[in-house]
Design a protein around this nucleic acid. Structure first.
Length: 294
DNA sequence: CCAGAGACCTGAAGGC
DNA sequence: TGCCTTCAGGTCTCTG
């Protein structure tokens, strides 16, 4: 579910509450939420107890709170249905609450996740170096060290990413969704960027020009920035910000999930197909289906 | 090394 | 009113 804009909205929402906060009365309610932790859910709760957060950071769809001496972090991944909620009213715990902690006199943090594809763990921070400039070093949790910088961070190297994409004999959409090439893009913003750049998802990455690949990446940056400005994309109550409120970008989507409705550019009816195992919505007029990929 | 399929979950929506 | 199938914003791991 949540892609870069949604995770960034959550990060901005929890940062004012979590920076400088100490965790107390930590409860972890489900073994699956702790599956990336070397121990049980109870062990995780015990190790989180009394930890003090320094900063709240994000790369792509991974979100973490740095701890004390800045060598460790609490890592969150929201998966398909994860939410992080801050509650200042002593509300009863919601269904699917996987982790609950007190972070202030009357303030509580909940990790809620219906489908349990998300997780929480404690993870060491390791250095990563930007291909753009070797002096740009960023410490990220070891479980996020394999992913590339995201489209909105200073370490993002447009030319290098375009070269990597062009070296892959996979559908362009598969390359965009590969977090090891560029992180933060998910199914919504991949479809939106491809629609904006007028490229069909099944076109082979290796068959596109650098100019086209740059155009797609810039479209992804632009659409994500617009989504961020309005709080992200919500279709239902599965994506909400830290206060439990939805984002408003769904009304601005051009393609994602809109098969059968007119293309906002040419009025042809949008169609749906499957590329790389994921649903793809496209305009058959603006985004020509490849006949033969080379 | 790389690409593709399957696995991991819960719940909503649509067909019969 | 069910019951069954399909689908959903994402990784991760195994196979060939």
């Amino acid at each position: 579910m949540p892609e870069l804009p949604e995770v960034e909205v959550v990060r901005r929402g929890i940062e004012p509450y979590l920076s400088g906060a100490t965790l107390h009365n930590v409860e972890v309610h489900h073994e699956r939420v702790a599956r990336r932790f070397a121990g049980t859910a109870d062990d995780l709760a015990r190790q989180l107890e009394g930890q003090t957060v320094t900063t709240v950071e994000r790369r792509g769809k991974y979100l973490w709170a740095t701890l004390g001496e800045d060598t460790r972090s609490i890592l969150f991944h929201l998966g398909m249905s994860g939410q992080i909620l801050v509650d200042e009213n002593h509300l009863p715990q919601r269904a699917h609450t996987r982790l609950h902690a007190q972070i202030g006199a009357d303030t509580f943090l909940s990790f809620v996740d219906q489908r349990t594809f998300g997780y929480v763990t404690i993870d060491n921070l390791v250095p990563t170096v930007s291909t753009l400039d070797p002096t740009i070093v960023r410490f990220v949790p070891s479980l996020a060290a394999h992913i590339a910088p995201d489209l909105l961070e200073p370490a993002f190297d447009l030319e290098e990413v375009a070269r990597t994409i062009r070296s892959r004999r996979v559908p362009i959409k598969t390359a965009l969704l590969n977090q090891e090439i560029v992180s933060g893009i998910g199914n919504i913003y991949a479809d939106e960027a491809l629609w904006q750049a007028r490229v069909h998802a099944a076109r082979l990455a290796s068959g596109l020009s650098y100019a086209t690949i740059r155009e797609i990446l810039q479209a992804a940056q632009e659409v994500m920035q617009r989504a961020l400005n309005v709080g992200g994309t919500s279709f239902d109550n599965l994506y909400v910000n830290a206060a439990g409120e939805p984002g408003y970008f769904a009304r601005s989507l051009a393609a994602y999930g809109k098969a059968g409705t007119p293309c906002p550019r040419c009025q042809s009816l949008l169609e749906r197909c499957v590329v790389g195992g994921r649903s793809h919505t496209y305009c058959p007029n603006c985004q020509k289906v490849p006949r033969r990929n080379r």
